[in-house]
């Protein structure tokens, strides 16, 4: 390079330009630019578009885009199905999150104890459903829930038409979701358990704490940041859940298993009413935001009380 810069004015200029470009096209800059472009195109732009779309009579498939102000919000908030979907979503989220936490923590404690052998195999087995695509899992569970040849009724000796029974359809979807997702909590809790300081447990043992007291007074409080993380990520994920509803029940029987995200999907991609779907998305966005803030606030208050 240096030798070239000495060859003359023109050559020197060329190399300097090359050096400048080299400085711009570094791995860091290119990766960063790719990420910025990705997030701008697939995250930021759609969010702003949804906000704008919520104020319009909007069907991008045929180019309809007319200003309607807050009409979509009025329509959504006065729709009984919207509130029913909110109720179903609340039940779906609450039950799924609680079971994900309880099962995840329980199995993680079991795997981290000396009682269980073949820990790596079990950890892999528990995590497998989490990495399997939801579509495939949901289809398999549809067959398992089938009242004629499904495994669940046969094994348990039941006679329930799970996905067509108004009392069992939502629980059936929740059971499948818990089964698919608990491995995520197991792996995270296992990691958290392994990183807990041994000294605290040694001190507790010296003080004469039994296993139950150690769990309640030491393990659980120390796992709080991880629990909060799992609760918040689970809530965000479950508020957006619709694939399992679409495949397993189609929102039915009737509208018994409509969740807010399935309603948004139905409104946008079945009825092509993207304006009202966007208004629902904005409301869901606000709900998720408020829930997350409340969770952080509750966790902060608890920390303050403890300290």
């Amino acid at each position: 390079m240096k030798a070239v810069t000495k060859t003359g004015h023109t050559g020197s200029k060329t190399i300097q330009t090359g050096k400048g470009l080299g400085r711009v096209f570094t791995m860091r800059n290119v990766s960063l630019a790719a990420l910025v472009i990705y997030f701008s195109v697939f995250m930021i732009y759609p969010i702003f578009k949804a906000f704008a779309g919520s104020m319009h009579d909007w069907n991008p498939l045929i180019g309809t885009y007319k200003w309607v102000g807050f009409d979509n919000f009025r329509l959504v908030l006065s729709d009984g199905l919207f509130w029913k979907s909110i109720g179903n979503t609340a039940v779906f989220c609450l039950v799924s999150v609680v079971f994900r936490i309880v099962l995840g923590l329980g199995l993680a404690l079991l795997l981290s104890s000396k009682l269980v052998k073949a820990k790596d195999t079990l950890r892999g087995l528990f995590y497998m459903p989490t990495i399997t695509p939801m579509v495939a899992v949901a289809f398999v569970w549809v067959w398992m829930f089938d009242p004629q040849f499904g495994m669940i009724d046969r094994v348990l000796g039941l006679d329930i038409n799970w996905l067509k029974d108004p009392n069992w359809a939502l629980p059936a979807v929740i059971i499948m979701t818990i089964w698919k997702d608990f491995g995520y909590a197991v792996v995270l809790y296992l990691g958290a358990l392994m990183s807990l300081p041994r000294s605290v447990y040694e001190a507790a043992a010296i003080d004469g704490a039994n296993a139950w007291q150690t769990f309640w007074k030491i393990t659980l409080p120390l796992l709080k940041p991880m629990t909060l993380f799992i609760v918040i990520t689970s809530l965000i994920s479950y508020l957006q859940a619709y694939v399992q509803i679409m495949i397993m029940t189609g929102g039915g029987p009737g509208t018994q298993t409509y969740t807010i995200s399935y309603l948004i999907f139905d409104e946008a991609f079945q009825k092509y009413k993207f304006g009202t779907a966007s208004a629902m998305s904005v409301l869901l966005f606000l709900m998720t935001g408020i829930l997350t803030i409340l969770m952080f606030k509750a966790s902060g208050d608890m920390n303050m009380e403890e300290s």
């Binding site: 067509k164 029974d165 108004p166 039915g252 029987p253 009737g254 509208t255």
Partner: peptide, 10 residues
Amino acid sequence: KKSFQDVFQN
């Protein structure tokens, strides 16, 4: 379809 489900299943 929803009507049918409402009568026969719900």
